[in-house]
């Protein structure tokens, strides 16, 4: 598994994500700076971490989504490369057009920072194959703009194609259809608001995030999902 994590100005979960990946993958994770114009040639997975890139000015993730490295990540994803966007990373992926819909201000306007219950809605993806079918997990959220929104046609298509990866059991932000995470058309891109990298060590409150990274390891080792 050859993985990389991108750091933008204002990223703040980049190290956490790299540490969680390294622990499960058992090998070092490349750290990439946002200004780089090329991805390492042999990469399997790119992680876009949480944070407040460029202060979230204009719209969350909007400016990061136009940076040179994200253009490369879009091409990498179109070639079938695995891309995982968490929290601000999810916002960047929607702004970059790799995932449909948008993330807007939480319905009750509050920044939500707590653990939430999620249901794994599909195990048919390289991100979720190691979870038991219908697994319920506890994962922290920490965001102000996690309210997922898309037009009715897009929501219906996400449902029909089994591309809703995670749903909130107790919706913290007003998200349409309780959506916490979605897959891209090719199932090789996942965006999610909750932070699986924060529940990969029992000393930090849980290990419910580990199967996500184990899924990726299995998918890459097995060649495809």
């Amino acid at each position: 598994m050859r993985a990389a994590v991108v750091t933008f100005p204002g990223s703040n979960c980049d190290r956490d994500l790299a540490v969680a990946m390294e622990r499960v993958f058992g090998r070092p994770v490349r750290r990439l700076w946002h200004g780089e114009t090329e991805l390492p040639a042999d990469l399997d997975l790119v992680g876009l971490p949480g944070g407040f890139t460029y202060g979230d000015y204009l719209r969350p993730g909007a400016i990061a989504a136009r940076s040179p490295i994200v253009r490369e990540i879009v091409r990498f994803a179109r070639r079938g490369g695995l891309v995982l966007g968490i929290c601000n990373g999810f916002q960047i992926l929607t702004e970059a057009g790799l995932l449909p819909g948008a993330l807007v201000r939480n319905r009750r306007l509050l920044f939500v920072c707590r653990s939430v219950r999620l249901r794994v809605e599909t195990t048919d993806s390289p991100f979720t194959r190691a979870f038991p079918q219908g697994a319920e997990i506890t994962v922290p959220v920490a965001h102000h703009d996690g309210n997922y929104l898309a037009d009715a046609g897009t929501l219906a298509r996400l449902e029909d194609e089994g591309r809703i990866a995670f749903r909130y059991l107790d919706n913290p932000n007003g998200s349409a259809r309780d959506i916490a995470g979605i897959l891209g058309e090719g199932r090789n891109v996942l965006g999610m608001m909750p932070h699986p990298e924060r529940v990969c060590d029992p000393r930090l409150g849980g290990t419910d995030g580990v199967p996500l990274f184990r899924s990726l390891l299995e998918a890459v080792a097995g060649g495809g999902s």
Partner: peptide, 9 residues
């Protein structure tokens, strides 16, 4: 089109 507005919303 490129940056200022997000046509989805």
């Amino acid at each position: 089109e490129v940056l200022l507005a997000n046509p989805v919303i």
